[in-house]
Design a protein around this nucleic acid. Structure first.
Lengths: 167, 167
DNA sequence: AGCCCTTGGTTGTAGCGTCAAGTATTTGGT
DNA sequence: ACCAAATACTTGACGCTACAACCAAGGGCT
């Protein structure tokens, strides 16, 4: 029965800090965006992913992958953003089951004006406290964890090397 | 106006992976605990922190710190766990404003029987994909981030070197 | 003492996410 | 050609969290 491999002290210490960050970071990102743009971090992320897509358009499933979200969650969020005039839903011609989500002009402007404040927050709270080696280590470690918790490879590691206002 | 320091390619790549993990990991932890113990990860964390405390008792504020939670959130969660018989609230004699949360026997047993499955999940998804160097790097990096996003030092880095079923 | 500010905690409400169910279309098998 | 299964998405209900408002008790100050 007791073949459980408990965490050793080093593992436990790292895990506790990691859990704390996972618990606290979303609040930090959300509150800045909520205060400055009345957007949750996830809403911003949806708009940002669309802003980088060709024609500012993505199918719902593709957008869900790009934002690490479930389809129901995305559907609700897109509905809200549609009501606020940032996104439009259009039918997909190749597959009539599918729905395209397209950024409106107002939505694109929203991303452009929101991005600087968001990037600044990310820098202050995550990037700038780290050295270049830390960044490389973080990338490697998160890549390894993603390899296990994202077995379907929903996460798309293809889009690299951008200086655009993704985040 | 445009004094924004955008993320360079390395920073952007690491940030995207980090965000994906922060978005996906809670779901992984929650679903295992929900399935096997009908507990959210946060509920489990509350019980686990109490199980390690002297007398299995902590004041609400202390428990909120230990679990990186706000007081209203904790209050609601403790109410639920109290209804399920895992926690009891008792008055605090030194400060009559305060409330003590104490683990019941049933609550302690719940932690004991739930811990192995949880630790296994943590191992499989986070710890085991990493090398010992990765663990050290993760600890260092999360410590640096915590230093900025947790300025009031709610997070308590004192309790180290345990092999107990914290996680 | 009397006042005010702070601290500790609870409660209500509103908003977001998850889960389950449902619809529409496409695909694959026969 | 037909039917079952899979895919793409939406919807509704329920549960949890954040925020704000609130109450009670302590600590300082005069």
């Amino acid at each position: 029965m007791n073949d459980v491999r408990w965490l050793n002290p080093d593992e436990l210490q790292a895990w506790k800090k990691f859990v704390a960050v996972v618990e606290l970071l979303p609040g930090v990102l959300d509150s800045q965006l909520q205060r400055d743009a009345e957007l949750s971090h996830f809403e911003y992320f949806v708009l940002a992913m669309l802003s980088e897509a060709p024609e500012q358009t993505l199918r719902m499933t593709g957008l869900a992958s790009a934002t690490n979200a479930t389809l129901p969650r995305l559907s609700h969020v897109v509905s809200r953003l549609e009501k606020r005039g940032f996104i439009e839903r259009t039918a997909c011609f190749e597959d009539r089951r599918a729905t395209n989500a397209q950024l409106t002009v107002a939505g694109f402007e929203k991303v452009v004006e929101t991005a600087p404040g968001h990037v600044t927050t990310v820098r202050e709270n995550v990037i700038d406290p780290l050295t270049p080696e830390d960044i490389a280590d973080l990338d490697r470690i998160m890549g390894r964890i993603l390899g296990t918790i994202d077995p379907e490879h929903r996460f798309n590691p293809s889009a690299l090397g951008e200086t655009q206002p993704t985040a």
